[in-house]
């Protein structure tokens, strides 16, 4: 299955080319983070299809995933 991914702020260099990743069916955000080589301790919050999700939520084909580090500037 294919997942759309966008990583934000300091994590943006980990965004995949064209924003797309091939994943095995049943993969979770945790699998995705490992697949992209994202530093797990820097990932603070994940959104799947516009909703906050936990690391073990199963992903579906064409799901949209947003990955954020800590952000606090003002």
């Amino acid at each position: 299955m294919q997942v759309q991914v966008r990583c934000y702020a300091t994590l943006s260099p980990y965004s995949p080319p064209e924003g797309l990743v091939e994943m095995a069916p049943g993969s979770t955000p945790r699998d995705l983070i490992q697949n992209l080589g994202l530093p797990m301790d820097e990932v603070k919050i994940i959104f799947v299809n516009g909703k906050s999700a936990d690391l073990s939520t199963p992903l579906g084909d064409q799901d949209r995933v947003g990955v954020f580090p800590a952000v606090g500037g003002g």
Partner: peptide, 29 residues
């Protein structure tokens, strides 16, 4: 942080965006 900007409104008892702030001092993006 950089090109990423976020805003949220929190009334007492609402869900909060505090997960974005789970970092040590000086560790935000």
């Amino acid at each position: 942080a950089g090109n990423t900007g976020l805003a949220s409104t929190v009334f007492p008892g609402d869900r909060t965006p505090a997960a974005f702030w789970q970092a040590g001092q000086g560790q935000g993006a």
